[in-house]
């Protein structure tokens, strides 16, 4: 059996859930068996509370989903307070991956430090790529130098972390920069930018005009990104993009990923990650 490790952290299997698709964990209580999963990634937390975008926030397309949620979350202080007082994550027998997005480059290290201090967390995800925030219009990973600076600063904390990158930026350049700067893993990738229009009004369907596109429709593009990043980096890749079955997960492994993250399909089949883990276990045993 293969060993599934990121930095110092071992995983029972290579199947995770993707941030933004698994709530803060508790939403899936009773709907899936956490002890069957390698880990769960919580919804990205920002320094301050965010109420998120005004509706509409989602739109189904053939085999896909556009979303413009806008990082709705209660903010770092509130989440830390809950972790310290209620210890919600201790109930989940799996690795807890805590996803953070800063407003400034310095926020990432400050937030990472606070989360590590709060305890009950096994790994961090730096969300450098959420496409829904308009702060200046740019994401952190629109500039390789930014990626390098943030990653090297967080790496000094010597706590397992992955860097979630956007496919809408130079994902290959950012991957190489993140590895150089000391990242322990890469999550390839966040959602693809997409749009829809309201034919009656002639306006874009979403208030932010662009939205994040995910679901089974993006799998071939995600596979391509995983494949080309895997040619250039040695650190583990967590593949994220449209996986809906153990068969899809196997394709991501073949493309060079070490882990597979289940995203949009959690909304459709809340126990899908468990199903994928079961199916994959069979494949890995035969290997």
């Amino acid at each position: 059996m293969k060993n599934f490790t990121i930095h110092t952290l071992g995983f029972r299997n290579p199947v995770l859930t993707a941030s933004g698709t698994f709530g803060m964990g508790g939403e899936f209580d009773g709907l899936t068996d956490y002890s069957k999963l390698g880990g769960i990634t919580l919804k990205t937390v920002t320094p301050r509370p965010r109420s998120g975008n005004q509706p509409p926030r989602i739109l189904e397309t053939p085999c896909g989903l556009l979303n413009s949620i806008g990082l709705e979350n209660p903010g770092m202080d509130e989440v830390i307070r809950i972790i310290k007082s209620e210890h919600p994550f201790r109930a989940y027998d799996t690795n807890i991956v805590f996803s953070i997005a800063g407003e400034t480059a310095d926020d990432f290290t400050r937030m990472a430090d606070a989360v590590i201090g709060a305890g009950d967390i096994d790994m961090l995800e730096l969300n450098l790529s959420c496409p829904n925030i308009h702060a200046g219009g740019a994401t952190f990973d629109s500039d390789c130098a930014n990626v390098r600076a943030i990653v090297s600063s967080v790496a000094r904390l010597d706590f397992p972390f992955t860097v979630k990158l956007s496919p809408n930026q130079d994902i290959l350049g950012n991957s190489i920069a993140a590895e150089d700067a000391g990242a322990h893993a890469l999550t390839i990738s966040n959602t693809f930018l997409g749009m829809a229009f309201d034919r009656k009004t002639g306006e874009p369907y979403f208030r932010n005009k662009v939205a994040g596109f995910s679901g089974p429709a993006v799998k071939p593009m995600a596979l391509y990104n995983v494949y080309r990043v895997a040619q250039k980096v040695k650190i583990p890749i967590i593949a994220s993009g449209g996986a809906a079955s153990a068969g899809d997960a196997i394709e991501f492994l073949l493309a060079g990923a070490s882990f597979i993250s289940i995203g949009t399909m959690n909304f459709v089949e809340p126990d899908i990650a468990e199903t994928v883990a079961d199916g994959l276990a069979e494949y890995l045993r035969e290997k």
């Binding site: 698709t21 698994f22 709530g23 939403e27 899936f28 709907l31 109420s51 998120g52 005004q54 509706p55 509409p56 926030r57 989602i58 739109l59 989903l65 979303n67 949620i69 709705e72 959690n266 909304f267 459709v268 809340p270």
Partner: peptide, 22 residues
């Protein structure tokens, strides 16, 4: 409303409230 998951995970089915919240 248009809904993603139905159990609070996706935050897709928000409805505006008069206090500016959702």
């Amino acid at each position: 409303t248009y809904m993603g998951c139905g159990f609070g995970a996706c935050k897709g089915c928000s409805v505006p409230a008069p206090d500016g919240g959702l």
